[in-house]
Amino acid sequence: MSDEKNRAPVIRPAGAGRAYAMGPVHAVFKADGEETRGQYSISEWWLEPYTRGPGAHMHEEDDVFFVIEGTMSFFVGGAWIDAPKGSLVIAPGGTPHDFENRTGERAGALNFSVPGDFEPHMEGIAEWFRARSAAESRTENAPSDT
C-alpha cells in the first residue's frame, strides 16, 4: 500500500492545533499540508469584539465558513451579511470576500479552504495583522473609547 493510503488519523482536542496570535485576531490550524495531502485546510478564526478581518480579497480556493460562536459579518456576493452561530457561508474561488466581528462579543468561525495548503502563508498573514494599529483593527461601528 502507498503511504497516502496509510495516513494516520488526525485528532485534535478542543483548543488544540497550531496557533497564530495576531492581536485581536487569533487563528488555530487544525489540519493542513501533509495532514490533508494539500487538498484542504481547516482552521478556526477568532475575532475579539469590534474587530476587522483581512479586508476584501479573493483567491482561487473556495472558502467555507461555519460560525461556531457569536455573530460574524461576511462580505460575499457584493454585500455584507450577518451570520449568527450555526450559519454557513461559502465564498467560491475568485469571489471577493471578507469577514469581521461587528458585535460586542467574541466571535469565531471554522474555515475550510478547498483545495488548500493555506498554513504556509500564515507567517506573512500573521505579520500583517500584528502590524495593524489598534484603530485599523476596529470596525466602523466600534464604540469610541472616550
Rank of each mutant, 00 (worst) to 15 (best):
E100N: 00
M1L: 05
V76R: 08
N141A: 03
V67Y: 05
A21K: 11
P13E: 10
D98T: 05
E136A: 15
N6W: 06
S133K: 12
P143A: 06
E119M: 14
L88V: 13
E136V: 08
F29S: 01
L110H: 11
R7M: 12
G15R: 11
Y50P: 07
W80S: 09
E61F: 03
G38M: 01
N6T: 08
A83R: 08
Y40N: 00
G104L: 00
G94T: 03
G108R: 15
F29L: 04
V67Q: 06
W80L: 08
S73T: 13
F29Y: 10
S87R: 06
R132Q: 15
A14M: 02
M22W: 08
E48R: 06
K85V: 09
W80Y: 11
S87I: 09
G70T: 09
D62G: 04
E61K: 01
M58H: 07
A27L: 09
H59G: 04
I81V: 15
N111E: 14
M72C: 09
L110Y: 11
K5W: 06
G23Q: 07
Y40Q: 02
G86F: 12
G55H: 02
R12I: 02
S87Q: 07
W46L: 11
E127R: 15
E123Y: 05
F99L: 14
A79L: 00
A107F: 11
S73H: 14
Y50V: 03
E136L: 09
P92Y: 08
Q39Y: 02
E119L: 13
E4L: 14
A16L: 00
F129D: 13
G116N: 10
H26P: 00
D3E: 13
K30W: 02
R7V: 08
D145M: 09
D32K: 03
G17A: 08
S113M: 14
H57G: 04
P96I: 07
K30V: 08
N141T: 08
G23N: 07
T139Q: 05
G86W: 12
R37Q: 13
A8G: 01
G53S: 06
V76I: 12
E69C: 01
K30E: 03
D3Y: 08
T146A: 13
E123M: 07
G70Y: 12
Y20W: 15
H26F: 05
F65S: 10
F65Q: 05
G94M: 13
A14C: 00
D98N: 15
E123Q: 11
A91L: 09
P54R: 03
S113A: 13
A107N: 10
E100A: 09
G108H: 05
S73N: 13
E34K: 07
Y50T: 03
D63P: 00
L88A: 12
M58T: 06
F112R: 08
D145G: 11
D63M: 01
A16E: 13
G116R: 12
A131D: 14
F29A: 01
R7H: 13
T95N: 10
V89Y: 11
W80G: 10
H59N: 05
H121Y: 14
